Computed example of a mutant assay.
Amino acid sequence: MQVLYTASARATGDGRDGHVQTSDGTLDLDLAVPKEMGGAGGAANPEQLFAAGYAACFHSALRLVARRAKADVTGSVVEAEVGIGPNGAGGFGLAVTLVVDLPTVDRATAEQLVAQAHQVCPYSNATRGNIEVVLTVRDAA
């Protein structure tokens, strides 16, 4: 693979109760363990960052496949829900649900575009076979 761009981020402090910053400084956040996991909450956490990245990346892939198909996806929205829990082997795992709103296309077209985007998206390609990813189409025309 020819790398077109490399992002770099650094984590300091106490892991999930620490700090992250990208090398260019555009992302600079304190982290906190969510209250649901016994932490104080009140700051970002790795699952939120993963959800934001996956939602943005998948939305970009969706718009790409829609352009190729000459489909109007005006008003489209992608929401990523990232869950974390014990994996049964002493560690933890993630589960993702991608909820896609495509209000300007019919359901069959929406489902086809979402399936195609799932094949194109780098996050989907990275997670395939490693974590469960559920695709949900909502609000199709």
Rank of each mutant, 00 (worst) to 15 (best):
A66Y: 01
L29H: 10
V65C: 09
P46Q: 04
A80H: 04
L4W: 14
V114T: 07
R63T: 04
T97L: 09
G75C: 09
N130A: 03
L98G: 01
D17Q: 04
I131E: 00
L27A: 06
V96S: 00
A43F: 02
L4G: 15
N130E: 03
L29C: 11
T104P: 01
R128V: 02
D101T: 07
A44E: 13
Y5L: 05
T104L: 02
G41Q: 08
Y123L: 10
S60F: 13
Y123A: 12
D14W: 04
N45L: 05
L98D: 01
G83K: 12
T109R: 01
Q119H: 14
T136G: 09
A110K: 11
P122F: 01
R107T: 10
A110R: 11
A126C: 02
G42D: 09
T136H: 09
D72W: 10
G38W: 07
T22Q: 08
R10C: 11
G18I: 01
A69F: 12
A117I: 02
M37K: 15
V82I: 14
A40K: 04
A115W: 12
S23Y: 06
R107G: 12
R128K: 06
L27R: 06
Q48Y: 08
G91C: 08
H59K: 11
G90N: 00
Y5V: 12
N87W: 09
R10E: 13
E79R: 12
A95D: 15
T12C: 08
D14S: 04
V120Q: 08
D30I: 03
A32D: 04
A9S: 13
P86S: 15
A11T: 14
I131N: 02
C121L: 06
M37N: 13
V133A: 01
D106C: 08
E79I: 11
T22R: 09
G15R: 03
R10P: 08
